[in-house]
């Protein structure tokens, strides 16, 4: 089975942990790289010890140093990353952010749940949410 590589750019450590926990449960050949902001991510993609071009980039918008929008603007200057599927995963549900994503031609826009009250009632934990989202993201790659 082909290995899938994902770069997760997310400043909230707990979201990263949740993502990793979900991946562990999925048990598929997925390699995860993580960066806490846009600068770190660009270093990973273009620096001396660069990683190979990932299949999927999961991107938070609201981050310190270099936010998601700035990162995308930088990334789009280099056509080598044109085939990478980019998913924005944010708590922001604002039209402004959505249309920004569309401008950069992202594959998906995922809203992280904030109201865990309602989620616990429906028995949806953060891990379950991540699990579901990852399955959706890699589904195409597997087939």
């Amino acid at each position: 089975m082909k290995e899938i590589s994902i770069l997760l750019i997310e400043d909230d450590e707990l979201d990263v942990i949740s993502f990793e926990r979900a991946l562990k449960k999925i048990n598929l050949p997925i390699i995860l790289y993580t960066a806490f902001n846009g600068i770190e991510a660009l270093e990973l993609l273009r620096g001396k010890q660069r990683i190979s071009i990932p299949d999927i980039i999961v991107l938070d918008l609201n981050m310190p140093k270099m936010n998601g929008g700035e990162f995308l603007a930088e990334l789009r200057k280099d056509s080598t990353f044109n085939d990478v599927k980019i998913f924005i995963m944010t708590t922001s549900n604002e039209d402004r952010d959505r249309s920004r994503g569309d401008e950069f031609g992202v594959t998906g826009y995922i809203i992280k749940p904030l109201n865990f009250n309602e989620n616990t009632k429906r028995n949806v934990s953060m891990d379950n949410f991540m699990h579901f989202q990852i399955m959706k993201m890699v589904g195409d790659q597997l087939n």
């Binding site: 707990l14 949740s18 926990r21 922001s92 904030l114 865990f116 953060m126 891990d127």
Partner: peptide, 21 residues
């Protein structure tokens, strides 16, 4: 307020959940 207060709350909740799990 809704965003920035809720994010750490969710984190606390997740941590408790993971400890149990």
């Amino acid at each position: 307020v809704s965003h920035d207060l809720k994010v750490p709350l969710r984190g606390i909740y997740n941590l408790a959940h993971w400890m149990e799990e």
